[in-house]
Design a protein around this nucleic acid. Structure first.
Lengths: 104, 104
DNA sequence: GCAACACATAAGCACACACTTATGAGTTGT
DNA sequence: ACAACTCATAAGTGTGTGCTTATGTGTTGC
């Protein structure tokens, strides 16, 4: 199955920028491409990689492919990071506040 | 300054394994090398990369170099991940519990 | 049916990167 | 002082990866 390396997938700046853009809203491949100085195949390849890592999900609609950030997609990253909780930033308090905020 | 890409640094499996080993205890480069089928220069290069990313810190003692995981080293990763809190896993509750635990 | 469209796949290329061996720089013990 | 050591740096090499152009596959509207 997906033995993809999430770190390797996220190592590419373009893919991270794509994720950031997708985080705001669901989007078709062409819509997402706007603002990127990249060819259509390159975009398609990146999307395939992100999808392979479970970071985005695809919704087909005719000839359009709608992409969006997949919930739980970054779970592996969270799990990995959790193993280093002893070295978590002191700014962890900010994170706590954030979580408290989310409770409401 | 350090315009290094923490994702690219962590994309290498050997470097992640090194971090994991260093998380248990401070260690010299040679000690760390045990269990890795890798040359001494390769190890040295990886250590330089990890250090460059602020993920580990070095303590010199004679001809020995002691390395350990740097606190706050993964802060950039945390900050990046925080931007995707809307897509955090449902297991987020576990994280909340963890933080509550840390309060005590 | 056919042209325009949206996207995926194929093939080839250039560059980045992790590795190697060889060597350098500094430290320790005899 | 010299040999053994710990680690870093230099230089070269092979592989992986992100890019391109070219082409394929399926969909929509006239």
């Amino acid at each position: 199955m997906s033995d993809v390396d999430i770190f390797k997938v996220l190592a590419d700046p373009t893919r991270r920028a794509m994720l950031e853009r997708l985080a705001s809203a669901e989007m078709t491949a062409t819509e997402l491409r706007e603002g990127f100085a990249i060819s259509q195949p390159a975009m398609s390849q990146h999307l395939a990689v992100l999808r392979g890592a479970g970071l985005i999900s695809e919704r087909r609609e005719g000839r359009y492919a709608h992409y969006r950030v997949a919930p739980d997609g970054m779970a592996p990253l969270h799990e990995w990071l959790a193993r280093y909780r002893a070295f978590w930033p002191s700014r962890i308090d900010g994170l706590k506040d954030l979580l408290r905020e989310m409770d409401q």
